Amino acid sequence: MTGSLVPAVSDHLELTILGCGSSSGSPAIGCHCPTCASDNPKNTRSRCSAYVRLGEQALVIDTGPDLRQQALREGLSRIDAVLYTHPHADHLNGIDDLRAFCYVKKGPITLYGNAFTLDNIRSRFHYALMPPSPVWDKPVLVLEEVAQRFDFHGVAVTPIPLQHGKWPCLGWRIGNVAWLTDLSHIPDDSLALLEGLDVLFLDCLRHDPYPSHLGVQQSFEWAQRIAARRTILIHMTHQLEYRALTAECPPGIEVGYDGLTIRVPLSAGAE
Rank of each mutant, 00 (worst) to 15 (best):
H91P: 01
L83A: 03
R78M: 08
S133D: 03
D182I: 05
G171R: 10
Y127T: 11
L197I: 14
I79V: 15
T110M: 06
H164K: 14
V104P: 00
A147P: 01
F152H: 03
I95K: 14
I79K: 00
G94D: 07
D188C: 08
M130C: 04
V142A: 07
P131D: 09
V199Q: 09
W136S: 03
L162D: 10
L83Q: 01
H164T: 02
N176T: 14
D203K: 13
Y112A: 09
P87V: 15
L191T: 06
L200N: 12
P134V: 11
K138R: 15
V146A: 06
F116R: 13
T117N: 14
H153S: 03
T110I: 14
L98H: 06
L180W: 00
S184I: 04
W172F: 06
S133C: 02
R122T: 10
T181S: 13
L83E: 02
M130Y: 01
A81Y: 01
H91C: 12
A100R: 12
C102K: 11
C204D: 05
V146W: 00
W172E: 12
F125C: 07
R122G: 04
P87Q: 09
D119H: 09
D137S: 11
P187I: 11
D97A: 12
I109R: 12
I160Q: 06
A115T: 07
N93Y: 08
L194R: 04
I121H: 05
D137E: 05
D188R: 09
H164N: 11
T85P: 00
K138Q: 09
Y84H: 08
P108T: 12
W136G: 02
L129A: 10
V104Y: 07
W167H: 10
L191Q: 14
K138C: 01
I174D: 10
D90K: 10
H126N: 12
H91R: 03
K166V: 15
P108F: 02
F150R: 01
P187E: 05
P87H: 10
D203I: 05
I174E: 03
A192G: 04
N93S: 11
T158H: 04
F101K: 08
R122N: 02
L202C: 13
G196C: 12
H91V: 07
K166A: 15
V142I: 15
L98Q: 09
I121G: 07
T158R: 02
T85V: 07
D198I: 03
G113D: 02
P168I: 12
F101R: 04
P139C: 02
P161T: 14
V177G: 08
G154D: 08
L200P: 05
T181R: 07
